Simulated scan of single mutants.
Amino acid sequence: MPTGVALRDAREQLFDAAERILVRDGPSALTSRAVTTEAGCAKGVLHRHFADFDAFLAELVLDRIARLEGQAAALRDSAGTGTVAGNLTGALTDLFGSVAVAIVSLIIFRDDLRARLRQTRPTGIPLVAEATEMIASYLTAERELGRLTPGADIGTLAPTLVGSGHLLFADRKGIPPEADAVHKIVTTVIAGFVREPRS
């Protein structure tokens, strides 16, 4: 493979290549050689941008967590519009219909990566914890708007929704669940707390 070929946005190309491998072949197939081969570059490119492979993987996870910020802001902004169940269904589908399930598998699969991430994220599973915060923030906004009952326990509802959503999407070889299946889980979890017509 030629080593003199410059990559534009090398980090992003390497991250995208890693995601493709994760989704297609799972975390056990993710090696530095597999990533650089998938990206179409020399192996040294990865090591020019990252101290080692675990540093690369940690940056990949942190980059994908940072992408959740935009999704979280959009979800918070949707409070008071549409239906609570519809907004949550869309958010969980966007979250787990992406590479997030594969990233969670990677974090669980690689002890060294998990240990490295624990240095800045000491509790919870990275990405899952941020997703739970995103859902909790939205639910809190809806409760403040009166579309959820005052007694709605956000600390229980948010992780229940995220965990249920993750389980629906966890089979990366299977067909993603239908929107109706996600919606059914959401409406079941929030039943009794919604003060709006359910759809």
Rank of each mutant, 00 (worst) to 15 (best):
L14M: 15
A131Q: 03
D52Q: 02
H183Y: 07
A39L: 11
L139Q: 02
E59T: 09
R24Q: 14
P177T: 09
P126K: 10
A66T: 13
D9H: 04
A179Q: 14
A34C: 06
L145E: 04
T83H: 05
F96T: 09
M134F: 08
L168A: 06
P177L: 07
D63C: 14
Q71V: 10
T31K: 09
R121N: 11
K173T: 14
E133T: 13
V162W: 11
K184M: 10
D52P: 06
R172D: 03
A91R: 00
L157N: 05
L46F: 13
L106Y: 07
A66C: 11
V99E: 04
F169Y: 15
V189G: 02
F193M: 15
L92Q: 07
D111H: 05
F15H: 02
F50W: 11
S105K: 06
K43S: 13
A102Y: 06
F169D: 00
K184D: 10
A58R: 04
V99S: 05
L88A: 05
R67F: 12
R67E: 13
L68T: 13
G146K: 08
E12F: 01
G163V: 02
T120H: 11
D180R: 15
V101A: 04
R110V: 04
V186Q: 00
R121K: 12
Q119R: 14
A72H: 02
P2R: 10
S28M: 03
A73W: 05
G155K: 04
V104Q: 03
A102L: 03
G124P: 00
L167R: 15
T3A: 12
H49E: 04
T160G: 08
L57C: 14
A6G: 01
D77S: 00
T31R: 09
E196L: 15
Q71E: 11
D111E: 06
R116Q: 03
I185M: 08
F53S: 05
R143Q: 01
R67P: 04
K184G: 05
E142T: 10
S32N: 07
L60T: 07
S137F: 00
E130N: 11
H47F: 15
R11K: 15
E38S: 08
V61P: 00
R20N: 11
L62K: 13
A18M: 14
L14C: 12
Q13V: 09
R118A: 14
V104E: 09
V45H: 08
F169R: 06
R114C: 10
L62I: 10
A29R: 00
P27V: 06
P27I: 01
L75Y: 03
T83N: 06
R143S: 05
L75C: 08
H183P: 05
Q119T: 15
F15G: 09
Q13T: 07
G146A: 00
A6S: 12
S137Y: 11
R20L: 13
P126N: 13
G155H: 12
G146T: 09
P197G: 12
L148M: 01
G165K: 08
D25I: 03
S78C: 12
D171K: 08
A72G: 03
L7F: 01
A55H: 14
K173I: 13
T37W: 02
T120N: 11
T123C: 03
R24L: 11
P27Y: 00
I175A: 13
T3Y: 12
V194H: 15
G124N: 01
V189S: 01
I154G: 04
R64M: 10
A85Q: 09
A39R: 00
P176Q: 13
E144T: 08
T123W: 03
A141W: 03
